[in-house]
């Protein structure tokens, strides 16, 4: 996966678990020098305001650590519910699935990588 971190959420997260994910993930970004974070939520049946805030936090913190976050695989019912609830996930990139998420990250990091010359992983 090169310099991308892939996180798959398989269970319904309760608060402490979600907060642990936040800190673990940010630590991993720092330890692995990741430039991109993919969060696969295709197995998640519910995103409430708390989970939404966690996803926003991860994206914001990753950006500060110089990494981009893409949330992938959101179920249609979850997306509709989020909008009605009033959550926009404004700071988070989304993609339909992992492949599309990878494409998005490559596209977003492509020019950046060449300019900065800081692409450590195996590129495509």
């Amino acid at each position: 996966m090169g310099s991308f971190l892939l996180v798959t959420i398989q269970v319904d997260l309760y608060d402490r678990l979600a907060l642990n994910l936040e800190t673990d993930l940010i630590r991993m970004v720092s330890e692995t020098d990741a430039r991109g974070v993919l969060i696969d939520i295709s197995a998640v049946g519910l995103v409430d305001s708390f989970m939404g805030r966690i996803l926003n936090n991860i994206a914001t913190m990753s950006r500060i650590m110089d990494a981009e976050t893409v949330v992938v695989g959101m179920q249609p019912a979850v997306a509709i519910t989020l909008v009605e609830l009033g959550l926009t996930l404004a700071g988070v990139h989304t993609a339909l699935n992992v492949e599309r998420g990878m494409e998005l990250l490559h596209k977003r990091l492509g020019s950046d990588v060449r300019e900065g010359g800081r692409f450590y992983g195996n590129s495509e």
Binding site: G45, L46, V47, D48, F50, P76, A77, I80, T81, L85
Partner: peptide, 11 residues
């Protein structure tokens, strides 16, 4: 969809 909305509201 109905289930998802109700469970989210409950949450």
């Amino acid at each position: 969809l109905g289930q998802t909305k109700l469970i989210t509201a409950a949450s």
